[in-house]
Amino acid sequence: MNKKNIAMVAASVLALGLLVWAAWPEPPGVETARLTRGDFVRELVEDARTRVRERYTVTAPLAGQLVRPVLKPGDAVGADQVVAEIWPAAAGLLDARSQGEQRERVGAMQATLARTQANLARARVAEQQARADLQRAQSLGQQGFVSSTQQETALLTQQQRRQELAMAEQEVSAATHDLQRLRIGLSQPAASGSGPLMRVRAPISGRVLKLHRDSEGPIAAGAPILDLGDPGQLEIVTELLTEDAAALPAQARATLDHWGGQGQLRAHLSRVEPGAFTKVSALGVEEQRVKAVFDWQDAPPDGLGDGFKMEIRITVQQASGVLLAPVSTVFPQAQGHAVFVVEGGRVRKQAVDLLGRNGQQAWLGTELPEGAVLVTYPPATLREGDRVQPIKP
Rank of each mutant, 00 (worst) to 15 (best):
R201W: 09
A254D: 03
T116N: 13
L364R: 00
G303S: 07
R271L: 12
R131P: 01
D295K: 14
S320W: 11
A223T: 07
A254F: 02
I391S: 05
A246C: 00
G217W: 01
E26W: 10
A108R: 15
P203S: 04
Y377M: 11
R213F: 02
R383W: 04
Q360R: 13
L209F: 02
A282Y: 11
K291L: 15
L140I: 04
A223E: 15
R383N: 06
Q150K: 10
A247G: 01
R51C: 08
Q350W: 04
Q333M: 06
E367G: 15
E101Q: 10
A250L: 12
V322K: 02
V327L: 09
L209P: 01
E54D: 15
G385W: 07
H268P: 01
L186S: 13
P300F: 02
L93Q: 13
D95V: 03
P231N: 01
D257G: 11
H268R: 10
R313P: 13
I6Y: 08
L14F: 15
V82R: 00
T366Q: 03
A121E: 11
R161L: 02
Q318C: 02
V208I: 14
L234F: 05
S328W: 01
W363V: 07
E239N: 10
Q251E: 10
A132E: 12
E104K: 12
D302N: 14
P189Q: 01
P224V: 02
L355K: 07
I219A: 03
I86K: 04
I314Q: 05
R253W: 04
S98H: 05
Q335G: 10
A221E: 14
P25I: 09
S270R: 15
